[in-house]
Amino acid sequence: MKTGILKISLTFLLFALVGASCHDETEFPPLEDKELTVSEIKTQGCKDNLKSNDIERSIELKAEGENKLRIKFVNATLNCAGLDTTYAMINDGILRVTFIDYNWANCICDFDLECVIDSMEQRKYTAKVSAGGEVATFSFDYSKNLDSKVEISDDLQ
């Protein structure tokens, strides 16, 4: 009788351990609101020779060093005057990166916009990257090996 109870107990313990080890969603503490340092702000464009039906938009993410993230917004639509400034912050638990264009041009075209953000933590992020009224929302896992591309649909939020 004692052997049967011991076997049943060990079986339940084994299932509990296997169930706990299969849980792959890591819980992270909430991100605190803060402004992040942005450097290496670059722009490539004005790509006025692109046809609107040929344009593929994407966000490229690449880790650099221990805690830096290079973000490249490919084919962001801005006015022809181009990029004015870029800022990044954590707000309400979301990484927000905003590329701001000049307000005084009377035409629009596509640009490749790029920056490097400092102080990244190894964790899962929800991100909102915006440029010229376009906002791409997505999630990604930051690690020192990050090198990915997020395709953006034409119906940006």
Rank of each mutant, 00 (worst) to 15 (best):
Val150Glu: 05
Leu61Val: 02
Lys144Asn: 01
Lys34Phe: 04
Ala105Phe: 07
Cys22Met: 12
Lys47Tyr: 13
Phe99Cys: 03
Ser119Pro: 07
Ala81Thr: 08
Val129Cys: 10
Leu31Phe: 04
Arg70His: 07
Asp101Lys: 02
Asp24Arg: 14
His23Trp: 12
Thr11Tyr: 05
Asn75Cys: 09
Phe140Arg: 06
Asp118Ile: 07
Ser148Val: 00
Cys22Glu: 08
Gln157His: 15
Ile94Tyr: 05
Leu14Asp: 01
Leu69Val: 07
Leu113His: 02
Gly19Asn: 11
Lys128Gln: 14
Ser148Leu: 02
Phe28Gln: 01
Ser148Gly: 04
Ser153Leu: 15
Ser119Gln: 12
Glu56Asn: 12
His23Glu: 13
Lys47Ala: 09
Ala81Lys: 10
Lys62Val: 00
His23Gln: 14
Arg96Glu: 14
Lys2Asp: 14
Thr26Ser: 07
Glu64Lys: 06
Ile55Asn: 03
Pro30Lys: 05
Thr85Asn: 15
Asp33Cys: 08
Asn145Cys: 02
Arg96Phe: 05
Thr98Ser: 11
Ala63Cys: 02
Ile55Val: 15
Ala20His: 08
Lys128Asn: 12
Thr86Ser: 12
Pro30Trp: 02
Asn106Ile: 09
Phe28Cys: 03
Leu6Trp: 04
Asn49Thr: 13
Ile8Cys: 03
Lys62Met: 00
Asp110Val: 05
Val97Arg: 03
Ser119Thr: 13
Glu40Asp: 15
Glu25Trp: 11
Ala88Lys: 03
Val38Asp: 09
Cys46Val: 09
Leu6Glu: 10
Leu17Cys: 11
Thr26Asp: 03
Lys149Ile: 12
Gly65Ala: 09
Gln122Ile: 05
Val18Arg: 05
Lys42Trp: 10
His23Met: 12
Ile71Asp: 04
Phe111Glu: 07
Ser139Asp: 14
Asp84Trp: 12
Thr126Val: 12
Gly45Lys: 08
Ser130Tyr: 03
Gln122Gly: 04
Leu69Ala: 08
Tyr125Val: 01
Ile90Tyr: 05
Thr137Phe: 06
Glu40Pro: 06
Glu40Asn: 15
Glu60Thr: 10
Ile55Met: 04
Asp84Lys: 15
Ala76His: 04
Leu113Phe: 11
Ser153His: 15
Ile108His: 06
Asp110Thr: 06
Ile100Thr: 13
Pro30Phe: 05
Ile5Gln: 12
Gly132Glu: 01
Thr126His: 07
Ile55His: 07
Ser119Trp: 02
Ala88Gln: 02
Glu35Val: 14
Lys51Pro: 00
Glu121Cys: 03
Met1Thr: 13
Glu32Gly: 13
Val97Ala: 00
Cys46Phe: 09
Lys34Trp: 03
Asn67Ser: 13
Thr11Arg: 01
Ile100Met: 08
Gly19Tyr: 10
Gly132Cys: 06
Lys144Val: 00
Ser148Lys: 00
Leu50Tyr: 07
Thr126Asn: 11
Thr126Lys: 08
Gln157Val: 15
Glu25Gly: 10
Lys34Asp: 04
Leu6Arg: 10
Phe140Tyr: 08
Asp110Trp: 07
